[in-house]
Design a protein around this nucleic acid. Structure first.
Ligand SMILES: [Mn+2]
Ligand SMILES: [Mn+2]
Ligand SMILES: [Zn+2]
Ligand SMILES: [Zn+2]
Lengths: 138, 138
DNA sequence: TGCTTGACTTAGACGTTGTCCATTGTAGGG
DNA sequence: CCCTACAATGGACAACGTCTAAGTCAAGCA
């Protein structure tokens, strides 16, 4: 996520310790943290960072399209730094583990005109549900 | 949704005015109300019904599989009485209108083994997003 | 290097959604 | 018509998120 910092600088963002830490926390693959999880991890690197700043920064990252909001569970929103490669999600119903997945085919094409009710359809979000290998063992 | 009441009676549910009213409110097609919307409508028919009872009843209906929880928006859960016919959802990004839709094909088959990470995948939930004809006019 | 300033951060109040519990009420069987 | 177990109620509480007023600081400039 080092180039995320570059892109933010390019957009005229002030580079603060708080924003750097949030960007660091969001680094990696299959990362789908809630705002409070981001805050908890950020605090270990920058103890005085506030909840409001984490919420603000995540909101801004979503607005400019650098981070996606996903709602795979019905509780808190999750923040996904993998915004530049379209993908869907596979969720374990027991432990909540989330993996990025890439189904084949074009699901948009699978919605017939007769099922569109006059809508202009632009996007589709797919959430696969199942049980992860870890939970299956137990 | 009159047969919903029948099924509930068959399961040994006590038929109370509150449960009847919640079932009435959930009657119809393309119904996807939040708990508080259900409560607001229930109150017009039975002014003394409490929020707790609406939440309890919806929770029970979900547990026994007569109603589905859907999370098409990132705020409140929505309750869907159309539980016996599998379907997906089409959501207007402007006004939030939700329609039940039936895409063709089998999206489960579109997730290759190499994209399953050892999970046992049992289900997929699809949310199409777009703009409804009403909002497109404005 | 040291100002200046407006963008940024902070703490905590507040709002919304959802859960829990002790008490009160009642559906439905005997 | 009574019992009593099940259901409803209201209000406290919890989780998640938003907002604001006041203080702080990144970054451009003398
Ligand atoms: Mn993802
Ligand atoms: Mn539906
Ligand atoms: Zn698992
Ligand atoms: Zn619309």
């Amino acid at each position: 996520m080092s180039d995320l910092l570059e892109r933010l600088r390019g957009r005229g963002w002030r580079m603060t310790a708080q924003r750097r830490v949030v960007a660091e926390v969001l680094d990696g693959d299959h990362v789908h943290l809630t705002a409070d999880e981001v805050h908890a991890r950020a605090v270990t690197k920058l103890p005085e960072i506030s909840r409001a700043t984490v919420y603000n920064t995540l909101g801004e990252l979503v607005t400019i399209g650098e981070v996606l909001e996903v709602s795979t569970d019905k509780r808190a929103k999750r923040y996904d730094p993998n915004a530049h490669q379209p993908h869907h999600h596979l969720v374990c119903g027991q432990c909540g583990a989330i993996r990025d997945v890439h189904p084949v085919g074009n699901p948009l094409a699978d919605l017939p005109d007769t099922e569109r009710f006059g809508f202009t359809v632009s996007d589709v979000e797919m959430t696969y549900r199942g049980v992860c290998p870890n939970c299956a063992k137990a």
